[in-house]
Design a protein around this nucleic acid. Structure first.
Lengths: 190, 190
DNA sequence: AGATAGTGTTGAACTTGTTCAACATTTTTC
DNA sequence: GAAAAATGTTGAACAAGTTCAACACTATCT
């Protein structure tokens, strides 16, 4: 069933009653996104939250100098959205693009509000998700300061081999905050 | 009253009933921390969450190379904790040190659990706090990649002048991810 | 299948930021 | 109030990572 992955995911984090599980899932609708298509583009207001079932996405922004900046990649089992835009109803700074044919479960902004009101445990669930997310962001920041580009590359490759495998070197380099030329030189060294 | 700042803070984010406000605040106890003292040291399990009433703290980790790495500073109106350690009951990688004589409101781990169970709106409140926090971490990461050290310094000084004013240049430089010597050179340029 | 656009590699010159050491100044401590 | 410790500054040599340009290779599109 389409909701299996989502059910496994939520139960891994918070104990949902069977009733709550059903209600929770009923708010989500499947959507397929072909390779290269944008789920969200800079300037649009993000009116959804997505949970990746299969495929892979790149979440990135463009700075004033015209450089892309990859925030993260979302593969199976990851959440997908621009929190700032979603929460504050403001135009997004982010682009969300499918790197391959992908499938997600989506919830609209209105339904998310209803979900919080009708399934109270959802509030706890997402609180815990966000806490985990903060831990990950903090780690990434420390690593960016304390590791060299080479160390960061090997760390990423070791911890997310399935994701690295889906990426071009240019995408990997951008995520690591280095040029693709330099990544090429790093790979040669190793 | 001691809880005024906390009340203003929570009401800015979520509508609490008068009853919920009282209950919420009743879980917190004031604590003063003299300058230079550690509220948490690497290796300890973080069993509290703190809300800064006055003063300022530095949250940092030490990497394997022996370098300090400042995650953030927490002044009045900021929350204080090691989420990872608090959530997973594991030894912390972080140090939390008072930069000046400070006062916080504290809640213990057990009380936090009780708070979530007895004051349901607390769950929503902290979910929103965590969302905002993620937005801030994402922004910081993008800035670290897209701005030069000079730009980062001026950005930080412009956005958090009260905090910068409390810091030594070494602390500011460490937060920005550069050496204090280089910060000195940046300041000379400007 | 051929044209086209995107990807990975390499080298040389360059820029940003680091390291180390020395010194002057300020702050803390007894 | 003197001694000690921490802070900020400057310079010279260095290292990490960038930029630009050229080339070979691989996908993609019709």
């Amino acid at each position: 069933m389409i909701n299996d992955l989502l059910l496994t995911h939520i139960n891994k984090n918070v104990k949902f009653s069977t009733r709550a599980q059903e209600e929770f899932c009923s708010f989500f609708q499947p959507k397929t996104i072909p390779k290269k298509e944008f789920l969200l583009q800079q300037g649009q207001v993000c009116k959804f939250e997505g949970f990746v079932i299969e495929g892979c996405f790149r979440i990135f922004s463009m700075d004033t100098k015209g450089n892309e900046n990859t925030l993260y990649f979302a593969a199976k089992d990851w959440w997908l959205m621009d929190i700032d835009s979603f929460m504050n109803h403001k135009p997004s700074d982010l682009n969300i693009q499918a790197l391959e044919d992908s499938k997600i479960l989506m919830i609209s902004e209105e339904d998310k509000t209803t979900l919080y009101d009708t399934v109270p445990i959802a509030e706890k669930f997402f609180r815990i998700m966000f806490q985990k997310s903060i831990v990950a962001w903090q780690r990434r920041l420390v690593q960016n300061h304390s590791l060299t580009a080479k160390e960061r590359y090997h760390h990423f490759k070791k911890n997310y081999p399935e994701i690295v495998a889906k990426l071009t070197d240019r995408q990997t380099a951008n995520y690591l905050g280095i040029t693709h030329e330099f990544l090429s030189k790093i790979k040669k060294q190793a």
